[in-house]
Design a protein around this nucleic acid. Structure first.
Lengths: 218, 218, 218, 218
DNA sequence: GATGAATGAGAGTTCATTCAT
DNA sequence: AATGAATGAACTCTCATTCAT
């Protein structure tokens, strides 16, 4: 905050529109946070990757944390809305289960960066933001828990703690992201097939399954 | 005092032996990295938590990265050695499977901080260190892959890609750490029982299982 | 909203006339510089307080410094013109002295913010502006110096360096601003009475005063 | 907080001792704050002027504000202790008055930078620090108030509000700093003589003074 | 073996300022 | 006449690291 020699002449605006710039930031943020983690990304780097000046970030976010919150919430909300669209509310529990599992798998295989930051950067969120994101995540988990609970009530799934089952299945399915490679030998469809079989095995009663043939092909 | 006053505590920790100091650092490092992540922990804080001077760290590690590498390798190696001890090489595949699963679960429930940093801080490792840790981890995963492969060869497990199965199971089991609370309503044993059932369901052939009763109680 | 949302207030201040906007800026500037000092006031804050957009400032001033210069000159000129009006050129030196002192006191008690920034922010002025303001100030000081000189010439004031006397008296009188509180126990009039007595004591010859009764009541 | 390329090799310490460095900072801080005001001094500049690295400042002060607080308190305390030493507690009120005035004048003429920042930078102090400094300043003012009160009680000074008189006199005397130049035409002693006469005139009863000769020569 | 003092680089953030609309 | 979007420079402060003692 000098007084006398403040004569520099900054070359200003590119005059872009607000939404475009925001998109640039979001894209750059997603890429970088995926690569290096939230704490590992400096705002200088983020701005450079987005192709904007460092201080321009503050025209769109109040601070660094807000960039992360925005990204996480954005993708959590999209995950939720896609899931809501994909899983028909009125269908039979077992069908909803199969659809949910397939949805979760394909979404996680196709949007590895997005889901990764939603899971791994929670630790960097301040308490309020953490609570907010946790709420979104809980809604997602409860979709599966509800399905499993319905399945048990309908007698088509083995009786057990539905929460434990849901967490176990979600962890298992999400575990596909670290190693799945769309250009690898296993196709998305092959992976789906195998994981669906595992998910089904997790919820059906083996004796029942043997009799009814459930768990064979989906 | 308006200026900062060093030397308030008259240097109590001088002349201690090397191992003790190292232990202090490791303990502090484990705690802090678990709480705030590697990038989120400054060496000032680490030294303060360990009760030593900041520069003392450099008597034990060449730089910050080395602290992380040391911690991760230490615990990966311990995981491996414990696993080696727990799983008897000569036993039948299915028995080894059950033992491995139970070992993995209890280890992960009891040492949540250790396993957490081994999984989540890989991203912060420089390439060489990353490769080294990945090697250790691969050895661990291959133990399970080998067991499953043996089980398939022996005809006691359903034929499938053993790698996919192993990754799925490991992800599922490790997924217990975020929510398991030793003071919560579910006992360690109850969790084990349920997860073992899920793991078994993942590998057995359902028809076979119905006939032989495998997958019922373990 | 997680991102910053501009245009919340749908641009109410457009198309107003130039003078009104300028007044808003001046008022806000006076308030803020008084509260936080020139260097402590950002243009963001200034614009916000004035209820205008940040860049609108540059329609009225070439830069930040000019805002300060404008304010200081504005009030210095007003001080001068008020003084010129208040002090009758033709009156006797001692009467002019009394009038000047009373004027200075009341003006400083009633316009504390204005006179404060005129005194305290000189340091923040660039050389040219500083010279300009110093010129104005000198004219004001010389009004008192002239009065005292006249008084000495007329034999109604003690012989001494008129400049030193004037500076001393001005400092003394201006020193009322930091502590005077219009809502405090001492009325403006009471303060005037006491300070006038002090000012008179500063210029009269004590022996003379005792004989003539000057310095008793004004 | 990058990870991979943090390889820079900083050239470290000059190994100086703590007190010397602190003195360098204080000297530089006094000079710069006097020249440009607290808000106008950046820490880069301060460090450069002190001949140390920017971050070294934080080994001595917790933050920028603390530098100012330290400087102001340091000099306020010195002012107080010098005054205490100079003014003999047991002397007659009028003598104490003369000694105080002379002390105040010479101190202010000789330490213009120090007293200037103690007066002018109060606005930049955070509430707690402001209160602390105000307390010191009040002690100083009350020394003079006490002297005047004693003088009134002893009948050697004109009855009036001692606080108003003290504030007026202090403002008048302190007003010497903006214009006094040790290399100028008026010697320190000449200034003292004139100002002491003014100060005396402010407190004595003019009739009394004429009779007793007080206020003539000091 | 451990420490205190120091350091350059970089962190997140705010600054005064520009310009197309 | 006024604004929203943008910008480089500078801000305060923390980082990992070094070295004489």
């Amino acid at each position: 905050m000098r007084t006398i020699d403040r004569k520099a002449a900054p070359r200003p605006t590119e005059g872009q529109n607000r939404q475009d710039t925001l998109s640039l930031i979001r894209t750059a943020g997603l890429d970088l946070i995926y690569e290096r983690g939230y704490e590992g990304v400096g705002l200088r780097l983020l701005a450079a990757r987005a192709g904007i000046g460092q201080s321009t970030l503050y025209g769109h976010y109040a601070n660094k944390q807000d960039v992360l919150v925005d990204l996480i919430c954005l993708h959590m909300e999209e995950l939720l809305s896609c899931m809501d669209k994909a899983v028909p509310a009125g269908a039979a529990p077992f069908d909803r289960f199969l659809i949910f599992v397939r949805f979760h798998l394909t979404y996680h295989m196709r949007r590895r960066r997005e889901v990764f930051i939603c899971y791994s950067e929670l630790r960097s969120l301040e308490p309020d933001n953490h609570a907010r994101v946790t709420g979104l995540r809980r809604r997602y988990e409860h979709a599966l828990i509800g399905i499993i609970r319905d399945g048990m009530a309908a007698g088509v799934m083995r009786r057990a703690d539905p929460r434990v089952a849901a967490y176990a299945i979600l962890a298992m399915l999400s575990g596909v992201t670290p190693w799945f490679d769309p250009k690898g030998p296993l196709s998305e469809e092959a992976v789906c097939k195998e994981y669906i079989r595992l998910a089904v095995a997790a919820v059906v009663d083996p004796v029942e399954a043997a009799l009814t043939g459930r768990g064979a092909d989906h």
